[in-house]
């Protein structure tokens, strides 16, 4: 799909888009690129503007300012929408139609849909094709929505909170389906407020809070931007001395112990041990992406308050 030359070219773009609902600015001059073949996670707390961003890309919401492009076209164009599939939050499938009928109807909108068997298999609905939609469990209905998103064999998939409300096992099932889609070369935009989900699936994470991008990068980079480690130990070294070491962000005296915050604790500790071999009561605590995320959104809130 496409040649190597345009691999890095964005296939979907939000350019400085603002969207307001009454007095609330849901999305604030937000820019976003989706590149071919990547899994992009939009991560943020509830109400951060993730779903609005997706809705803007899908023409379900209209921007007050800024521009939206899907494959170089307006998302309003049927030609653009033929190349995407979307799993929307809160869609309640019902009625007396059967699973295979619902999928066949959706597949028929596309030029080159997946076969029914393939769709059912990828979505984990094998053997349920003759079941009336009303008789599906909540998790199965979610899988059917997922099936409707993927059945068109689209290059770009939007999955808005695909695993919300699912148990751990069902969530893992979704993850492996999403990984399979990525292996097939599809681009995926995933919104989630589960950090572990973004960490497990995404090539790139964009952290959104209050309608703005507050961080973007690979999961590792996101962790690194704020994933500071805490080194706590008792040492005869002075605060000022440690502060001069590379990679140290801050040093605090906590009683007789020092609390050193650093991006790469290994090199800091190496230097410290060279200077004070008697250093003791050592404790290094890591930051998971969870903490990074909280740190990011907290900082953002503090800035807002200031």
């Amino acid at each position: 799909m496409g040649n190597i030359a345009d691999t890095r070219a964005p296939i979907a773009v939000l350019k400085s888009v603002t969207k307001r609902y009454g007095p609330v600015t849901a999305v604030d001059k937000l820019s976003l690129d989706i590149r071919r073949g990547e899994v992009l996670a939009l991560l943020g707390p509830n109400g951060a503007g993730k779903t609005t961003s997706v809705n803007l890309l899908l023409d379900l919401a209209w921007p007050a300012s800024g521009s939206v492009e899907l494959f170089g076209l307006s998302p309003r164009e049927v030609a653009a929408r033929r190349r995407i599939g979307a799993m929307l939050q809160g869609a309640q499938l019902g009625g007396h139609a059967r699973v295979h009928e619902v999928i066949a109807l959706q597949s028929g909108y596309y030029l080159n849909p997946l076969s029914l068997t393939e769709t059912l298999h990828t979505a984990g609905l094998d053997g349920l094709e003759h079941r009336p939609v009303t008789k599906l469990s909540g998790g199965q209905k979610q899988r059917l929505l997922f099936a409707l998103a993927i059945c068109g064999n689209s290059e770009l998939l939007f999955l808005d909170e695909p695993t919300v409300g699912l148990d751990v096992e069902a969530r893992r099932g979704f993850w492996s389906s999403i990984r399979r889609l990525k292996e097939q070369g599809r681009s995926i935009v995933l919104t989630t407020h589960y950090i572990e989900e973004a960490d497990a699936l995404a090539d790139r994470i964009v952290v959104i809070n209050r309608g703005r991008v507050i961080a973007a990068g690979t999961p590792a980079e996101i962790k690194r931007t704020v994933a500071q480690r805490h080194i706590r130990c008792i040492t005869k070294l002075k605060v000022a001395q440690i502060q001069t070491l590379p990679e140290v962000t801050s040093v605090n005296q906590e009683g007789e112990r020092l609390d050193i915050v650093a991006a790469r604790p290994e090199s800091v500790l190496f230097e410290m041990l060279k200077l004070d071999p008697a250093l003791h009561d050592l404790e290094v605590t890591g930051a998971k992406l969870e903490e990074a995320f909280l740190a990011l959104t907290d900082e953002d809130h503090e800035e807002q308050a200031a």
Partner: peptide
């Protein structure tokens, strides 16, 4: 109300 209309709007359906 059930979001079916939104699904139809996102789908490449006239």
């Amino acid at each position: 109300e059930r979001g079916i209309l939104a699904l139809k709007r996102v789908a490449p359906l006239p």
